[in-house]
Write a protein that binds this DNA or RNA. Structure first.
Lengths: 65, 65
DNA sequence: TCATAATGTAAAGTTTTATTTACTATTAGT
DNA sequence: ACTAATAGTAAATAAAACTTTACATTATGA
């Protein structure tokens, strides 16, 4: 799975810390998601997608399987 | 948060066990999600939404905040 | 170049998702 | 009423998300 968090965050001109704050998670969580270290919860994914004005499907892309 | 898993599963006429199988998780996981015992991963949410021909946003609804 | 903000990384610890097993309750068919 | 399939529940465990702290690296700007 890949995601567009880093580019969307850049689009909004937010630092990892600012995004983390906005979403109520730690900066490390943002970093880990951007680096595909893990698979976030739906709630977090929904909040992120909403913030970026995208659907969850657009923001998080499952590659094959 | 609430979700439409139970009704969508009924629409496809699947048992919890069949759905679990299809998604590669345990029956208890399906049960827990239907009962809002927890907040699944995006990957699982994406797979479910795809199976039900819905978006993640349609299948999992965050109430308030 | 010096200072500072932002990002990368890593380890230890907590919390929550997910599995496994197992047993009970409910429903449907014969 | 009996049987079998399905669903509810619960507890113990494993695995993964997420937090906290801390420090190293890279970029930015005065």
């Amino acid at each position: 799975m890949k995601n567009l968090v880093k580019v969307e965050r850049a689009r909004l001109d937010l630092t990892q810390a600012q995004l983390a704050d906005t979403l109520g998670v730690s900066r490390q969580t943002i970093h880990a998601i951007e680096k595909n270290k893990f698979n976030p919860s739906v709630i977090l994914a929904l909040k992120m997608a909403k913030l970026f004005s995208l659907t969850v499907e657009e923001l998080f892309i499952i590659d094959e399987e």
